[in-house]
Structure formats: structure tokens, C-alpha cells
Design a protein around this nucleic acid. Structure first.
Length: 224
DNA sequence: AACCAGGACGTGA
DNA sequence: TCACGTCATGGT
């Protein structure tokens, strides 16, 4: 058993399954990995993935609620609304000018897919979608085995001495994916482990890797 | 009051 | 390629 897989199991043992992605009106869905259940929910993941850039998901929920309250949470309805109205709705999530632009860029791309699953490369061409957002959309929206790296993951791996400070996104992604692939052969199981592992790191990170100095009280430190 | 949140992009070295 | 500035609201 490699270190990453061990970390995953320790986190799972401590926090239990997370059931990401949290959907509007449903929340988390522990034990049911058959989400998203329709194209509107796939779009909701993408929308949330863009809105959550450098902000808390709580503020994203506020923005999504604002859109939902006026019946504008689908790609079609957002496309047809006034851009100023869109900006007003997503204001709680910050960077509303850029994010409104990013969302419209994504909708144009999303519509061109006609239901097809996008590749990572295609997503990265959309202005406003970087590596983390692309992986978020693929992992939680399309159930693809693409590990999502975030700030908490880097802090944790750094604190445990598993990467260097200069490590890039791809370095961490390869480490996480290769380590977990080594233990899981079934593709469906792998995607679920990617989802759970990332969300577990976020849960753990919220508690021990939010404020400096990072890692105070982290139970994983004594095990590596 | 300072710092950070489930980042991405543009710029100049 | 890399370091840095910018984007913006909201909670602690």
C-alpha cells in the first residue's frame, strides 16, 4: 500500500464518505454515486466549478440560489438573461465580472458539445477554465477519472513531505493518480475513489490547513 | 485589520 | 518558464 492510498484510507476512516458533488436541493449524496442524473446537473457542476474559483462553496450556494430563485440555473436560461442580472446573481462569489464572462464562454462551448463528453484539452481551451476547474468538471460533472488538485492538497502533500514547494499542478496530479491507480483496477471504482479522496482532503483541509501555520493538529503528520 | 476561500489570466522579465 | 499583479465578495 503506497502513502497516498494510506492517506486516503485514514481520511476515509476518520470522516466517512463525503458524497460530492453537493447539488442544489439535494446536497451531498453519500452512498449514491450515480450523479449527475441529467444534463442540467452536469451543467450545475460546471457552473459551480467556475463560481468556486478562489472562494468558498458557501458563497457559491448563495449565487446558485439567486439564479435558481428566478428560474435561471440552466445553460439555456442563463444564456438568455441580461448579463448585468447574471452578475448581480453571482455577486456573492466574487470576481463577478470575470466569472460572468467565463460562464458565458463555457455555455457556448457546452452547447457545441451536443451532450458529448468533452476532453480535458478542449475544456482548457475555454477562457476561464484552468486545470483545476477542468478536472472538477470532468471528475464530478462527467464522472471521468481525473484527479482534482486544490490548494489544500498541495499544503497537505507539502506538510507530509511528499512533494516539493516547487511542485506544479501536473506533478501533484500524476502523484495522486498513479498512486491510486496502483491500488484500484476497476475504472468505476477508481473514479469514485478520486472523488472521495479529493473531497476528503478538502474536509480535512478546512479544519487543519486553512490558516497558518498549516497542519497544526493534523493526525496524518505523525504517521509519515 | 489582515488573511484566506474547493483559481485563472495577463504581463514582463 | 516563472514570479507577480489583478480580479471582488464574505467570513473569521
Amino acid at each position: 500500500m503506497n502513502k497516498i492510498y494510506k492517506i486516503y484510507n485514514l481520511l476515509l476512516e476518520k470522516y466517512g464518505t463525503q458524497g460530492w458533488w453537493p447539488f442544489l436541493g439535494i446536497g451531498y449524496h453519500k452512498g449514491d454515486y450515480k450523479y449527475p442524473k441529467n444534463s442540467d446537473q452536469i451543467f450545475e457542476v460546471a457552473l459551480g466549478s467556475i463560481l468556486t474559483q478562489n472562494t468558498t462553496f458557501l458563497s457559491v450556494v448563495k449565487s446558485l440560489d439567486n439564479l435558481n430563485d428566478i428560474g435561471c440555473i440552466t445553460s439555456k436560461t442563463i444564456k438568455s438573461m441580461e448579463i448585468d442580472k447574471l452578475k448581480e446573481c453571482i455577486k456573492p462569489s466574487g470576481y463577478f465580472n470575470q466569472k460572468a464572462d467565463y460562464i458565458l464562454n463555457f455555455i457556448e462551448f457546452y452547447d457545441s458539445l451536443n451532450g458529448k463528453i468533452p476532453t480535458r484539452e478542449e475544456l482548457l481551451k475555454v477562457k476561464g477554465i484552468g486545470e483545476e476547474t477542468a478536472d472538477s468538471i470532468l471528475l464530478y460533472g462527467y464522472n471521468q477519472s481525473q484527479f482534482k488538485i486544490d490548494a489544500y492538497t498541495k499544503r497537505l502533500l507539502l506538510e507530509l513531505g511528499l512533494i516539493e514547494q516547487k511542485a506544479k499542478y501536473k506533478d501533484m496530479k500524476v502523484l495522486m493518480e498513479d498512486s491510486l491507480k496502483e491500488m484500484i483496477t476497476d475504472e468505476e471504482d477508481l473514479r469514485i475513489v478520486y472523488q472521495e479522496c479529493h473531497s476528503l482532503i478538502v474536509e480535512h483541509g478546512k479544519q487543519y490547513y486553512s490558516k497558518k501555520p498549516y497542519g497544526i493538529g493534523c493526525f496524518l503528520k505523525s504517521k509519515f
